[in-house]
């Protein structure tokens, strides 16, 4: 599963194109959080996840739980890139009967391990997957991506406390710290103060990285997999940019859950190198 940084960046670029296409086609959805998470998802799926695209329900696979399940275009884009679904399937995003439901759904889409969409649930589910792996004496891991606004849900901290208590070293969290939630910037909605200190205080191994720097992401994933960090749960706090990669979406709360118009879509394709200006 070795890939060069340049190769990973190209996969992420292609995924960004698909994300913008999906949201533009549906004229609905969540581009901001999909673009902030996509470099992380790319590195994780292309270099770490022990999964089989031709056997998505392989029982001993690593699990990936996108707890911020509304950021589904990012998930669908990487699943298509990895061969779990086809690029044609991406056209079913938010369409009746489509495998690409509005929020990721394990009953609809191959490769999706958890039906998300309600915030604050994925970490608990990941704890269940990690506990099952432990009882099975399996080496499989549970990776969970959560959002920063999502940490305002109290249930996240129920799970954080329980996972550390049970020393679930096979539970790995990636925090997409994009600083924006539905209504506004997180700091305006609910200040979260010292996030790394909070997780450390809950008994987790913590590392911070730039979530758009592929070399740093690889170091961060190394940290999650390091034997010394497999005695208890670990979290990678990835500082990202909401809407990252599309100039007019970057750090713009209005693109949390809004689609680009035709003109904006064209501009995005230009910025991503898909078409000439």
């Amino acid at each position: 599963m070795s890939k060069t940084i340049t190769e990973l960046e190209e996969i992420a670029r292609k995924c960004r194109v698909e994300i913008v296409k999906m949201v533009h086609r549906a004229q609905a959805g969540h581009p901001g959080g999909s673009l902030s998470e996509i470099d992380l998802l790319t590195a994780l799926y292309a270099t770490r996840m022990r999964v089989k695209a031709d056997e998505p329900n392989w029982s001993d696979r690593d699990r990936f739980i996108l707890s911020k399940g509304h950021a589904s275009p990012g998930m669908y884009a990487i699943l298509a890139e990895m061969g779990f679904i086809s690029h044609e399937d991406l056209k079913s995003y938010r369409v009746l009967g489509g495998v690409c439901q509005g929020h990721v759904d394990m009953k609809w889409c191959p490769g999706v391990d958890f039906s998300a969409g309600s915030l604050g649930m994925g970490l608990s589910f990941g704890m269940g997957c990690a506990s099952a792996a432990r009882i099975d004496k399996s080496e499989r891991r549970a990776f969970v991506m959560i959002g920063d606004g999502e940490m305002q849900e109290g249930s996240v901290w129920e799970a954080a406390m329980a996972a550390a208590h049970h020393e679930l070293g096979n539970l790995k969290v990636i925090l997409d710290r994009n600083r924006i939630q539905n209504d506004d910037f997180c700091k305006e909605q609910m200040r979260m103060f010292d996030i790394p200190a909070k997780w450390k205080a809950f008994g987790w191994n913590v590392k911070e990285i730039d979530g758009h720097n592929m070399a740093e992401i690889m170091e961060g994933l190394d940290f999650l997999e390091a034997p010394e960090n497999c005695q208890g749960p670990s979290i990678l706090i990835a500082h990202t940019i909401k809407g990252g990669g599309i100039s007019y979406m970057e750090n713009n709360p209005s693109f949390h859950g809004a689609a680009p118009n035709d003109e904006q879509f064209h501009q995005a394709m230009v910025e991503l190198g898909e078409v000439e200006a």
């Binding site: 029982s59 699990r63 394990m106 391990d113 958890f114 604050g120 649930m121 608990s124 589910f125 990941g126 704890m127 269940g128 997957c129 990690a130 506990s131 099952a132 792996a133 099975d136 549970a142 109290g154 249930s155 129920e158 799970a159 329980a162």
Partner: peptide, 14 residues
């Protein structure tokens, strides 16, 4: 809340 979803993760794992 955590308990119910830990259960869900276990059920999804067989």
């Amino acid at each position: 809340q955590n308990m119910l979803l830990v259960g869900a993760g276990l059920a999804a794992s067989g």
